[in-house]
């Protein structure tokens, strides 16, 4: 009950000052909550070659290759949801989750015993739970103040499940990028958000230790209250 009352009060305050689109209030407004949901695209990654090698009888020669594979994680389209709190017009904190279903693809070639070249796959379920700081570049507002570019940076937990949830691989994710938020209507509550950036992953499904970087992009609908 208390929560409903607070929300109503905030809505009234916000509504009272909401001008028409062409005269919209500068956003984002401090002390507001932003909920967004939409689609995300996470870029692919080449794991490289991995050969099935045998030890040669002639000890000094290079390994005998039974067959070759090239491995990559294809780009994955998925869903994302975020919730943020605007501390000041310039600064917000947010957390969220991204879910994608990328395909791990292996191209098998050059089999010593003549098996035809083939491509085989499995589908992963990839989750990133993250937190981030968002810096609104208020000096670059556009569309009468209803749009604002932003930069973001944060870190999260990467969880990747192989097909049929048979095996879980975990890691840390760091991300940074930029985008725009653009609110519509006089209320300034509903808008869109588009962003792009990089995601640096340490751990999770990879063929070697170390970090890898993939591009990420997303588009969401925002509701602000």
């Amino acid at each position: 009950m208390q929560r409903a009352l607070v929300a109503a009060v905030l809505a009234i305050v916000a509504g009272a000052g909401a001008p028409a689109f062409a005269q919209s209030v500068a956003v984002p407004r401090p002390k507001t909550v932003e909920i967004s949901g939409g689609v995300t695209l996470v870029g692919g990654y080449d794991f490289g070659a991995s050969n099935a090698e045998l030890t040669p009888n002639a000890g000094t020669s290079p390994p005998f290759v039974e067959f070759k594979t090239t491995n990559r994680l294809k780009p994955g389209l998925g869903l994302q949801g975020r919730i943020g709190f605007v501390i000041t017009p310039a600064l917000a904190v947010e957390g969220g989750v991204r879910f994608t279903r990328p395909t791990y693809e292996v191209r098998v070639t050059d089999d010593f015993e003549g098996a035809p070249n083939t491509t085989i796959e499995e589908t992963l379920s990839q989750y990133v739970f993250d937190g981030a700081l968002v810096w609104h570049i208020t000096g670059a507002r556009f569309a009468g103040g209803s749009g604002v570019p932003f930069l973001y940076g944060g870190a999260g937990y990467l969880r990747e499940l192989h097909e049929e949830n048979a095996f879980v691989e975990e890691g840390i994710e760091y991300h940074a990028g930029g985008g725009i938020k653009w609110w519509f209507g006089q209320s300034g509550r509903i808008g869109i958000r588009a962003e792009g950036g990089i995601s640096i992953r340490d751990g999770g499904f990879d063929f070697k230790d170390g970090k890898r970087m993939v591009p990420v992009a997303g588009a969401s609908v925002i509701y602000s209250f």
Partner: peptide, 18 residues
């Protein structure tokens, strides 16, 4: 029979079986 690769990548679980 001819040498044949299985049509899918098989994910092996820890402590279990595919």
């Amino acid at each position: 029979f001819r040498v044949t690769f299985y049509e899918r990548i098989v994910a092996v679980p820890r402590g279990g079986g595919a």
